[in-house]
Amino acid sequence: MATAADSGDPLPAESSVWLAARPAAPARRRSEAPSGLDRERITAATVRLLDAEGLARFSMRRLAARLGVTAMSLYWYVDTKHDLLELALDSALGELALSAGPVPEGWPGRLRALARGYRRVLADHPWAAPLGAAYPNIGPHARAFDAALQRLLDATGLAGSARTGAHLAVSQFLHGCGGAARRAPEGDFCLALDVLIAGIEAKAAA
């Protein structure tokens, strides 16, 4: 989990950028906003900065310098640095391919593809795993990922507590292995994933 040392200041207690209602700014204030900026551009720059320098070195001042604006300019578009980190986390998860198309191997093959894609995202963005543990992780791409996982579990035929247990096992496996994505070899991850899938198949068969 990210700590104050990782991100530079205390983590929010019970808040999320995805839960906060942002009232529209008055027309006069909107006209005063820095030109050439928007949330999407700022979020993309945040992802690039985190990839380049890591979570511990991230700051609004560094981000502003990369964008060629003042740090205060960023606060027209986000309320806090934590908002930006949440936006960056969900943007990274947006790189996942969540196709619902048919796969010859059925749900096991699709679950393998989904899990390996998730691991690749965390390996490409090593800051995403600690942020996923520190924040609610309820952005649109995170919800789309969970919905895709739920559809795969629907296909197993499991129900009740068995279905709940399978969801918990897969989620904990992905989040737990995510922090070690750059340290654990791909082959070890795939072997562990095969063991997990075999357990789900055995439970479904029973």
Rank of each mutant, 00 (worst) to 15 (best):
A4Q: 13
A4M: 10
A5C: 03
D6M: 07
D6L: 00
S7Y: 02
G8L: 04
P10K: 05
P12Q: 08
P12Y: 00
A13K: 02
V17A: 11
W18K: 05
L19M: 10
R22N: 03
R22L: 06
P26H: 05
A27V: 13
A27F: 09
A27Y: 02
S35E: 15
E40G: 11
E40V: 12
R41F: 07
A44K: 05
A45N: 12
T46Q: 08
T46L: 08
V47C: 14
V47R: 12
L49I: 03
A52C: 00
E53S: 09
G54T: 06
G54P: 04
A56P: 05
R57V: 03
S59Y: 05
M60S: 13
R62F: 03
A64G: 01
A65H: 15
W76E: 09
W76F: 12
Y77H: 15
V78L: 14
D79H: 10
K81V: 06
E86R: 01
L87M: 13
L89W: 07
D90M: 02
D90I: 01
G94I: 07
L96E: 07
L96M: 11
A100V: 00
G101K: 04
P102F: 09
V103W: 08
P104I: 09
G109Q: 13
R110G: 10
L111I: 01
L114H: 02
V121Q: 09
A123R: 15
D124I: 01
D124T: 13
P130V: 05
L131W: 08
G132P: 01
A133D: 14
N137R: 14
G139H: 05
A144E: 10
F145I: 00
L149T: 06
L152E: 08
A155T: 10
L158N: 07
A162F: 06
R163A: 06
V170K: 01
V170W: 07
Q172D: 04
Q172I: 10
Q172L: 14
H175Y: 07
H175F: 06
G178L: 08
F189D: 01
F189Q: 00
C190R: 11
A192W: 00
L193E: 04
V195S: 02
V195R: 08
V195I: 09
I197V: 15
A198N: 14
A198T: 15
A206E: 10
